[in-house]
């Protein structure tokens, strides 16, 4: 198998959306277009209420991704773990689909004996290591996130460190919501390394509302814009479409 491109949206938030469309719906639409949505709920001394937790889980579930709720101290490790977990999930989805084509309808990796599964797993590892990865990071900058932003920045630098150790290419971009004028604002355009964050991040202002749904919608649109631009340049832009898991 030739490595393709893994597309992910990583949403960092600390609670519930309060404006615009249902974020889980937008996540489902993103997933339909081959983009995985991961959510990390960031707590500090506060706790995320049940409503917030449910929303975080449902966004990730309908976005075909992973979710995790953590205290800020553990954020760095979690960000890279969630990203990797979602990568593996997507690749496994692709492989399961291939297996179904070869071995018949409902065969998945779990139906293979451990030894055979081990061989398939080596392919999954290999693809995870060599695939192209595009992560669009959506950072909630509503008022309650204000004193967590420094740690969010560190964890994103850490993510770029982890992912750049892979053999495949990486592209990151960072959006914040709410923006100054619009629901969402672009902070960093596609770049393989996130070092620029060190300069930009401390200057961020925080706002009151949390338009999570519109933010995901905007992120998907941005992915599509990139794809169509690149489509003009070359036609080898292959990507993974995850089959049923």
């Amino acid at each position: 198998m030739k490595p393709g491109t893994l597309r992910q949206i990583l949403l960092l938030t600390d609670g519930c959306s309060n404006q615009g469309t249902d974020p889980a719906f937008m996540a489902a639409r993103a997933h339909e277009q081959g983009i995985t949505v991961n959510v990390i709920g960031v707590m500090e001394n506060d706790v995320i209420d049940e409503k917030g937790m449910n929303e975080i889980q449902s966004i990730a579930r309908s976005g075909g991704g992973a979710s995790q709720i953590v205290y800020t101290q553990q954020l760095s490790q979690t960000v890279q773990m969630v990203t990797r977990k979602a990568m593996t999930q997507t690749i496994q989805g692709v492989i399961n689909r291939e297996l179904q084509q070869i071995l018949g309808d409902s065969t998945t990796m779990e139906d293979l004996p451990p030894d055979k599964r081990g061989e398939v797993m080596e392919v999954v590892d290999e693809l995870g290591e060599t695939s192209k990865l595009e992560v669009l990071i959506l950072v909630d900058t509503s008022a309650s996130m204000k004193h967590k932003l420094e740690i969010v920045k560190d964890s994103l630098l850490d993510l770029s460190l982890s992912m750049n150790a892979r053999q495949g290419d990486n592209q990151f971009s960072v959006f914040t919501f709410p923006g100054k004028k619009y629901d969402v604002e672009k902070l960093v355009d596609w770049t393989p390394k996130l070092e620029v964050l060190t300069k930009i991040f401390p200057k961020l202002t925080t706002g009151g509302i949390t338009p999570t749904g519109p933010a995901i919608e905007e992120a998907v649109a941005y992915f599509n814009k990139k794809r169509s631009l690149r489509g003009l340049l070359s036609n080898d832009d292959e990507q993974y479409f995850e089959g049923s898991m």
Binding site: R84, L161, S162, A165, Q167
Partner: peptide
């Protein structure tokens, strides 16, 4: 060797201390 480190513990990870990459 040559791939990227997937599991690590911050205290023992040179990436955390800013002293190198996470490549194996």
């Amino acid at each position: 060797i040559g791939r990227s480190i997937k599991e690590f513990t911050e205290f023992f990870d040179r990436g955390y201390w800013g002293l190198g990459s996470r490549s194996a």
